[in-house]
Amino acid sequence: MLKKEEKKQLDDILKAHDYNKTSVIAIMQDIQKIYHYLPQKVLTYIAGELGLSEAKVYGVATFYENFSLEPKGKYVIKICDGTACHVRNSTAILNEIRSVLGVSQEHPTTEDMMFTVETVSCLGACGLAPVCTVNDKVHPAMTPEKARALIEELKEEAANEN
């Protein structure tokens, strides 16, 4: 069941898109910015509000790799493993970040829901390789040492917000 505040937030998103069922992808993108994933109860709600079947909405959510049905951390770190990044040792960066955060490919999110670590095929920044992004902000010319420092910086940022 959705809370009153959640429902209002979702209604605002739907209203911004004129409750247009052809805008379902953009609506899901806006929702994912808030939740960092697409909760089942939210997909059910927007399906009903848009007059779409839940199967249709889930089909869209599962077709596009950018959408997630699993909860993600506050900071989503994507490490590029495309050719340019891979040959410049992105694997060492991935291993360092996973080691520092205590996550794995099978369990990519920290228990405190602060970090999620993912690999992607390409971030489209080959000239800056190797790269990673944190919540879509590009961090170029990464090294394992820079990655470790970035994690510490993010932890400090999170601590200062509390």
Rank of each mutant, 00 (worst) to 15 (best):
H139E: 05
L154F: 00
L50V: 13
I25P: 07
A159I: 06
Q32T: 03
L154S: 03
I13S: 01
A84E: 10
D30E: 11
H107V: 13
I79L: 07
L10V: 09
S53L: 09
V103N: 01
V76Q: 01
A47K: 07
T109K: 09
L52N: 07
N95K: 15
I31F: 06
Y35I: 00
L154A: 01
E152G: 08
D81W: 09
K74F: 13
V138K: 09
I151N: 00
A149Q: 10
G59A: 07
L101Q: 03
K21Y: 12
N160Q: 11
N95E: 13
L38P: 10
A84G: 01
S104I: 08
V76W: 00
I93Y: 02
G82W: 03
I77S: 03
M1D: 13
K78Q: 12
D112T: 06
F115K: 04
D136R: 04
I79P: 02
N95G: 13
G124R: 06
Q40D: 14
V76N: 04
K155T: 04
A47W: 05
I79S: 00
T116K: 00
L101V: 01
M142V: 03
G48N: 06
N66C: 14
L14S: 07
V120I: 12
M28A: 01
K78V: 04
M1A: 11
I34F: 09
V117A: 04
I93V: 07
L14Q: 14
A26L: 15
P71G: 12
N162S: 11
D11K: 03
P140T: 05
K3P: 06
P71T: 11
A149D: 08
A61K: 05
S23K: 13
L38R: 13
I27E: 04
Y58Q: 04
E145G: 11
V120H: 00
E106P: 05
C122Y: 02
S104Q: 09
P140A: 09
Q105A: 14
M142H: 15
L150W: 03
S90K: 02
G82L: 02
G51K: 02
I31H: 04
R88F: 14
P39T: 03
L14W: 02
K146V: 02
Y45E: 02
K21M: 11
D12N: 14
L10S: 01
V138W: 10
T83A: 12
D11V: 09
K155G: 08
